[in-house]
Computed example of a mutant assay.
Amino acid sequence: MRRFPLIIGFYLILAALFLAWLTVFIVYPRQQIAVKRFGQIMRVETVPGLYFKLPFIDQMVIIDDRLRRYDLPTKTVQVRGGAFYEVDAFFTYRITNARLFLQKVASGQPSTAEEVNLAPRFDDALRAVYGQRDFSAALSSARADMMQEVKQQIAGDAQSLGITIIDVRIRRTDLTKAVSQRTFERMRQEREAVAEQLRARGNEEKDKIIAAANREYEEIIAAATRDADIMRGEGEAGRIDILRDAIAVDPEFYMFWRSMDAYKKIKNLPMIIAPDSVFFKYLKTPDGQ
C-alpha cells in the first residue's frame, strides 16, 4: 500500500511529460511552422526557437524555408521568324508567406506548387519572351534581359501563392537538329561566297600586279635597248673616226691589213676566183703593186 502512491506519482509525472511534449514544438533554422486548429491557420512561426500549442487540437505544418530550385524539362520554343530552339532553364524560389502558401496549395508540398502552378506559367513565359525576339537574341547580350523578363512574368503568379521568385536562368539554348543543319548549310554557303569574292579580288589584284610588272619590264627593256643602241651608235661612230684617222695616216698599210684579214677569214671557205685577181695582189708582191 505504501508503494501505490509512488506508482501513481510516477505515472502522473510521465503523463505530464508526455503532455508537455505534445505542447511544445521547436522551430529550427531553415523552416517555418504553421499551427492549424480545426483546419484553420492560427499562426505561423518563422523565427527559430521554442513554442507552445494546444495538445491534440493544434496541428503543425512544416514549411521548408530554404532556397529551392525547379528545372524545367527541355522545351522547344519558336522565335520570331519561325526558327526553333531547344531551351533548358530553371528558376529558384523561396516560400516567403507560409499562410498564403497553405491556403493556395492544399497539400502544402512545394513540389505540387512547382508542377501544377509554376511550371506551366514558366513554360508560357519562356515561349512568350523567345517569340518576341530574333534568332540570335538568346546567344547575345540580350539573354540577361530575357531572363529578367521571364522572372517578371512569373513573379506575380508566384506571389499569389506566397512564393518569391529569386532568380531565373537559361542554362542552354541550342538549335534543333533540323534548324542546326539548315543554319550550317547557310553559313557554309555564305563562307563559300565570301571566299569566292576574296579569291576573285585576289586574282584581280594579281592581274594588276602582273600587268604593272610587265609594263615596268617593257619600259626597262625599251630604255635599256635605247641606251644600248645610243651607246652602240656612239661607239661605232668613234670606231669609224679612229679608223678614218688611221687610214689617213697610212692608207697603204690599212689596205694591207684589210687584205690579211680577208685572207684569214676565207682560209676554209671554197671560192672560185681568178688567180690574177686584185684580191691576191699582196700574195704576189709584198708591196701590193
Results as ranks from 00 to 15, higher is better:
residue 71 D to E: 11
residue 72 L to A: 14
residue 74 T to V: 08
residue 74 T to F: 04
residue 74 T to W: 00
residue 75 K to C: 10
residue 76 T to H: 10
residue 77 V to D: 03
residue 77 V to L: 09
residue 77 V to A: 06
residue 79 V to S: 07
residue 80 R to M: 15
residue 80 R to W: 05
residue 82 G to H: 02
residue 82 G to C: 07
residue 83 A to H: 07
residue 83 A to Y: 01
residue 83 A to E: 06
residue 84 F to I: 12
residue 85 Y to F: 15
residue 86 E to A: 11
residue 88 D to W: 07
residue 88 D to R: 06
residue 89 A to T: 01
residue 90 F to P: 12
residue 90 F to H: 13
residue 91 F to A: 04
residue 91 F to S: 00
residue 92 T to K: 06
residue 93 Y to L: 04
residue 94 R to C: 06
residue 94 R to P: 01
residue 95 I to H: 01
residue 96 T to A: 00
residue 100 L to G: 00
residue 100 L to E: 03
residue 101 F to V: 03
residue 102 L to K: 04
residue 102 L to I: 05
residue 104 K to R: 14
residue 104 K to V: 04
residue 106 A to I: 10
residue 106 A to W: 10
residue 108 G to W: 02
residue 109 Q to L: 13
residue 110 P to W: 00
residue 110 P to Q: 00
residue 111 S to F: 07
residue 111 S to C: 04
residue 112 T to R: 05
residue 113 A to L: 02
residue 113 A to M: 03
residue 116 V to E: 10
residue 116 V to S: 07
residue 117 N to S: 12
residue 118 L to T: 06
residue 119 A to S: 13
residue 120 P to Q: 03
residue 120 P to K: 07
residue 121 R to E: 15
residue 121 R to N: 09
residue 122 F to A: 05
residue 123 D to K: 08
residue 123 D to E: 12
residue 123 D to Q: 14
residue 123 D to Y: 02
residue 125 A to R: 02
residue 126 L to C: 11
residue 127 R to E: 12
residue 128 A to G: 06
residue 128 A to T: 14
residue 129 V to G: 01
residue 131 G to C: 14
residue 132 Q to K: 12
residue 133 R to Y: 03
residue 134 D to I: 08
residue 135 F to M: 14
residue 135 F to H: 07
residue 135 F to C: 08
residue 136 S to C: 02
residue 136 S to W: 04
residue 137 A to H: 03
residue 138 A to S: 13
residue 138 A to C: 06
residue 139 L to S: 12
residue 140 S to Y: 05
residue 141 S to N: 15
residue 141 S to Y: 05
residue 145 D to R: 00
residue 145 D to F: 00
residue 146 M to P: 03
residue 146 M to S: 03
residue 147 M to K: 07
residue 148 Q to D: 07
residue 149 E to F: 11
residue 149 E to K: 13
residue 150 V to P: 00
residue 151 K to F: 07
residue 152 Q to R: 11
residue 153 Q to N: 08
residue 153 Q to R: 12
residue 154 I to K: 03
residue 154 I to L: 06
residue 155 A to G: 06
residue 155 A to Y: 02
residue 156 G to D: 15
residue 156 G to M: 10
residue 157 D to E: 13
residue 157 D to R: 10
residue 158 A to H: 11
residue 158 A to S: 13
residue 158 A to F: 11
residue 158 A to W: 06
residue 159 Q to E: 15
residue 160 S to M: 02
residue 161 L to I: 06
residue 162 G to Y: 02
residue 162 G to N: 02
residue 163 I to D: 02
residue 164 T to W: 03
residue 165 I to C: 05
residue 166 I to M: 12
residue 167 D to S: 13
residue 167 D to F: 03
residue 168 V to E: 00
residue 169 R to I: 09
residue 170 I to C: 11
residue 172 R to D: 12
residue 173 T to A: 14
residue 175 L to D: 01
residue 175 L to I: 08
residue 175 L to M: 10
residue 177 K to W: 14
residue 178 A to M: 04
residue 178 A to E: 10
residue 179 V to M: 07
residue 180 S to M: 09
residue 181 Q to L: 14
residue 182 R to H: 14
residue 183 T to M: 15
residue 184 F to H: 15
residue 186 R to F: 15
residue 188 R to N: 15
